[in-house]
């Protein structure tokens, strides 16, 4: 055993030595710098630098003046997550309801990509600044008309990526495919068209939704998606309703086969 192991090892040793010498020659100058690492969390143990603080102060004051107002109360902290999330459902609903007002007609569907939800809604008082952090983008509202194939493509992407939120619909998903789709409580019909409220970014094919750029544009509205959310929250507040949302089975995952 002992000898046989040595005979196997020996050529390997020579090869290793050769390779190391080669590496020494080619990389010696730079490789002589040996790195070490420290991760430095920026936490409360550091006092703010006075010059930076003085620089921020006038901006902060201006920001607080316009952004500190409380526009609603949230029953719990709403966060985004794959498949279906309370935050995704809440925002998709807000877009659907408010877009209906701007379009003066009931809209069948709304969709928001999870990547567009940039911060949670905290529990308790919700300030304007929170909604700016949730939806910082200046995206505006598009109303599209989707044919059957485009509608199916939307739900197929939902089933495949599981990184978006929808309103007014239910998708049964198996093996990352939408096997059944219900829109406004009725089964999806290939021959029908459906209206969709969505951001200009997604309407123009962003976020992997290339097929939306082929859809018929019914209307473009000069209102920001963020403002739709703000208006929806103010509307709830006026009605004495707290911000809240649940995972309610809009995307139902069936075990894979």
């Amino acid at each position: 055993m002992h000898t046989s192991r040595n005979t196997i090892l020996y050529p390997g040793l020579l090869w290793a030595l050769f390779m190391m010498l080669m590496l020494q020659c080619t990389t010696s100058q730079r490789a002589r710098l040996v790195p070490s690492y420290q991760l430095m969390p920026i936490d409360i143990s550091y006092l703010p630098d006075s010059l930076a603080e003085a620089t921020i102060q006038p901006y902060r004051e201006q920001l607080l003046m316009s952004m500190d107002q409380v526009i609603g109360i949230s029953k719990k902290r709403l966060t985004e997550a794959p498949v279906e999330s309370p935050l995704g459902n809440f925002v998709a609903d807000a877009i659907l309801v408010q877009a209906g007002d701007y379009y003066s007609q009931k809209i069948d569907l709304s969709v928001i990509n999870n990547g567009g939800l940039r911060a949670p809604i905290p529990q308790g008082p919700v300030k304007l600044s929170h909604i700016y952090e949730l939806m910082p983008f200046e995206n505006t509202l598009y109303i599209l008309e989707l044919n059957g194939a485009q509608t199916r493509a939307l739900f197929d992407l939902l089933a495949r990526d599981q990184r978006m939120a929808i309103a007014n619909s239910v998708a049964i998903v198996q093996n990352r495919r939408a096997t059944k789709i219900f829109i406004d409580g009725a089964p999806f019909v290939d021959q029908k068209t459906y209206t969709l409220a969505v951001s200009d970014y997604l309407a123009q094919g962003g976020g992997g939704m290339d097929f939306l750029s082929e859809a018929k544009v019914l209307a473009t509205k000069d209102v920001k998606i963020r403002d739709l959310i703000i208006e929806y929250i103010k509307r709830l507040e006026a009605d004495g309703i707290e911000i809240d949302a649940e995972i309610e089975g809009r995307v139902k995952l069936i075990p894979e086969q």
Partner: peptide
């Protein structure tokens, strides 16, 4: 606000570090 990163970050503190 109870979030996972509460109290962390801040550019003035980073400047100090």
């Amino acid at each position: 606000d109870g979030g996972p990163y509460q109290g962390l970050g801040g550019m003035a503190r980073r400047a100090e570090v």
